[in-house]
Write a protein that binds this DNA or RNA. Structure first.
Lengths: 232, 232
DNA sequence: TAGATTGTTAATCGATTAACAATC
DNA sequence: TAGATTGTTAATCGATTAACAATC
């Protein structure tokens, strides 16, 4: 019974299909594995057990083994995990080296800060252009990336395939622009506008960065602490 | 039995104590309620039921009632929730209007982008200063906030009480600086360095913003989609 | 072989949803 | 009063942890 199922899996679910129903909780943890493995490589460590990694990351060894096993057996019984191999597999999963093309919509403070950050390059994402509507910005270059007129968006995307758009524009125009981007065939939006975008998830994947929400959570905890200590 | 327990709660747990064991999942959702209620107020809506709000926010009415009830009965049976009242209570919880003082450590691209964003003001957080080590930046002002020398940090904090520090500095110095901030009595760190800080949670609350992790999650989903559609 | 450590199943824990009694 | 909708308990669901057999 079990081996039969396993065979089925072998035959029917391969490659990407294998990760069809990985929970969001697991996916959210992958980048953290990526970071810690990168650090282990920097330290020249060749091999690590789930127990050792668990201590470093402050999680349970069980969770690490469960998480990694969603994507196949990356370890070896009695030995542990080969750091380089595991890192390579996680890079594959996260699309590092997939040569993703991104554009930044909005060349304001945040857009300009992002384009100059080493974050994209470190993760194999290539910023191919920025766009804005401000004539004072159009034509300039920031961090080696040219700022183009929003009017040129459609033409640009027709020439160079763009996988992802980073939205750093006023929330008032966020929805309108994101529909335009979807029409250009862009399938991923990294949304800094603070507005929840209502788009068809089959057409486009949205990753929201709610900086304001994050700030408020810290606020909450601070106030909480304060009133707690006052009560003592 | 039940009323006895309720009475106990009335007497023993009051104010902040009442929220002692609210789960992280609930707390993370509070800022979203804040945003949607603000929007309802803007629209002039006076009253809302959990059902109506649930549809707007794309969650279950059950979850909304459970969440809000962690902090006390904000609604009225047969009526629903008074929008203004509920908004005011959530503002209280999130410390909007608590007059929190923040400083930004690092006046680089991101620090300067953040200080100019309306985000802090909208949430009642007051940026009282920025700090940097770069002589080219020290003494300048950005968004009406003065950039001071990091050497002045201790003196400054002794004069003006600072609740929160925003960390936009190189990860290499993140730990060292955060210990220095803790010694200055700062109890909240909003950490943009991408490094997990190992600090005593009893002394200081850390809210991490891992922008790189967020980018990778989007990457993952994009690659996933691509391989999925190729497989069809 | 013996020891170590994974892969995987089973048990536990917590969070979400459903149901309904309380009550406005 | 009848209708509506909360507050709250019970049921369900999913995620985490523990345990252990498989196996290197």
């Amino acid at each position: 019974m079990r081996s039969e199922y396993a065979n089925n899996k072998e035959t029917l679910f391969h490659g990407a299909e294998e990760r069809a129903n990985v929970s969001a909780a697991v996916i959210r943890r992958l980048p953290r594995y990526f970071r810690y493995l990168r650090e282990l490589i920097r330290q020249g460590k060749m091999r690590i057990s789930s127990n050792e990694l668990a201590k470093m990351m402050n999680v349970t060894a069980s969770q690490i083994r469960q998480d990694l096993n969603c994507f196949g057996g990356f370890g070896q019984q009695g030995y542990g995990y080969n750091v380089n191999y595991l890192y390579a597999r996680i890079c594959d999963l996260l699309g590092v080296g997939a040569g993703i093309h991104a554009i930044i919509i909005g060349a304001g403070d945040l857009g300009r800060a992002l384009v100059r950050a080493p974050m994209f390059e470190k993760r194999g994402v290539d910023i191919v252009s920025m766009f804005d509507v401000d004539p004072a910005l159009i034509g300039r270059s920031v961090g080696g990336v040219k700022i183009r007129d929003m009017k040129e968006l459609e033409d640009f995307c027709a020439e160079i395939p763009v996988d992802m758009a980073v939205l750093t524009l006023p929330k008032e125009v966020a929805h309108e622009v994101s529909e335009r981007l979807t029409k250009c065939g862009i399938r991923g939006l990294w949304n800094f506008t603070g507005k929840d975008l209502a788009l068809d998830p089959a057409q486009v994947t949205v990753e929201n960065v709610h900086l304001g929400d994050s700030l408020m959570i810290l606020n909450y905890k601070l106030c909480q602490k304060q009133t707690d200590s006052e009560a003592l």
